[in-house]
């Protein structure tokens, strides 16, 4: 049930509003009721009382302006006098864009699938992102609430969907240890999510010295760690694919062979077996890489393959190897 209330409506308007709501009920996408504790509040801003309420709304309230003209150009507006069509349109839009069901309580959400499903997914030969941290992150990013993602024994991860940023303890890209990998590969039954306020997050950032990362960093890491060389579906191994853009390796821990894969997949359209063969990468590594690229949205499937044959003299190859070895002398990369 979706709820809303009103403030500073004049004369018969409260009664009129209730009747109109009943009248349009069947044409609404959701059920609505008048509730004095609702977050959504219709305010007559043509009255002094309404204006002052508009200036100082209660915390977390979402206000709808009620006036002859939308002079203040607010997104949520109901023209005076109330007409069925404008009311239907407004409420359906509100239902779609503004969360206004029963008051959202900060609650601990256990993700939905059954324990049996999760066990099955973990043992599966296929990588189903929705059963892992990466899927949880994707889901959070579709909403608007700042969310704390917690896994017992690991530091929390805070996601701010609107900014596509997250906060957590500093990640040493070249020293991701086994424990951290376990966190990034966590399955949804090990994860707890809780919405937090911006103020709470601010406090945590200060107290815990949290560091900001783009969400892509966490999506990449969690996909890489959970994928474990598994195709995303049975058909995935025969699909032709390419990259539409370079992964932003400045944001991700990477191995030099990831560079080779990216370079090859930007120029060629091939299936994973072809990619593995041409880049001398293990199939597992290719699959993990393509899964991570798919999660961050830079992988594209194609109908036909296209290979640009490139013959590099062996001496050149060995020279590049020597240069890379020299460069890696003081910069070490760990997956």
């Amino acid at each position: 049930m979706y709820k809303l209330y009103y403030h500073a409506l004049q004369k018969n308007d409260p009664v009129f509003f209730r009747s109109m709501l009943q009248l349009v009920g069947l044409k609404l996408s959701q059920n609505w009721e008048i509730d004095e504790h609702a977050k959504l509040i219709l305010v007559d801003i043509e009255t002094p009382e309404g204006q002052s309420f508009w200036q100082n709304p209660p915390k977390e309230a979402v206000l709808i302006a009620y006036a002859r003209q939308n002079d203040i150009q607010t997104p949520w507006f109901l023209p005076k006098p109330i007409r069925t069509q404008s009311l239907i349109q407004l409420l359906n839009e509100l239902a779609e864009h503004v969360c206004c069901e029963d008051e959202p309580k900060p609650q601990v959400n256990k993700p939905q699938p059954s324990h049996a499903d999760i066990v099955k997914a973990k043992a599966s030969n296929f990588f189903q992102a929705e059963y892992y941290l990466v899927g949880v992150l994707q889901q959070i990013l579709q909403g608007q609430s700042i969310t704390r993602v917690q896994c017992t024994g690991f530091p929390p991860l805070y996601i701010i969907p609107e900014e596509r940023r997250c906060f957590t303890h500093q990640v040493q890209f070249n020293q991701i240890n086994t424990a951290q990998k376990m966190f990034y590969a966590a399955s949804i039954d090990e994860i707890e999510c809780e919405t937090v306020s911006a103020e709470q997050l601010q406090q945590e950032i200060k107290q815990q010295h949290l560091v900001a990362y783009p969400v892509e960093t966490m999506l990449w890491l969690s996909a890489m760690c959970a994928s474990q060389g598994r195709f995303s579906s049975a058909g995935a191994q025969n699909k032709f694919m390419r990259l539409v853009q370079w992964p932003n390796f400045a944001l991700f821990p990477y191995q030099p062979y990831h560079m080779n894969l990216a370079a090859y997949m930007l120029k060629n359209i091939a299936d994973v077996h072809g990619i593995a063969q041409k880049t001398q990468c293990s199939l597992e590594n290719v699959v993990d890489f393509t899964n991570a690229c798919s999660i961050i949205g830079i992988l594209k499937y194609e109908q036909e393959h296209k290979i640009v044959e490139k013959q590099l003299p062996e001496a050149r190859r060995s020279l590049f190897k020597t240069i890379l070895q020299r460069l890696a002398d003081t910069v070490t990369f760990h997956k």
Binding site: A250, M259, K310, R317, F320, L324, L327, A328, T330, V331
Partner: peptide, 19 residues
Amino acid sequence: SRESVVMLIQALLAILEYG
């Protein structure tokens, strides 16, 4: 940052070899 510059060179060599 040395890491940054190394990353650029790694990407360049990857393009020369595989791109």
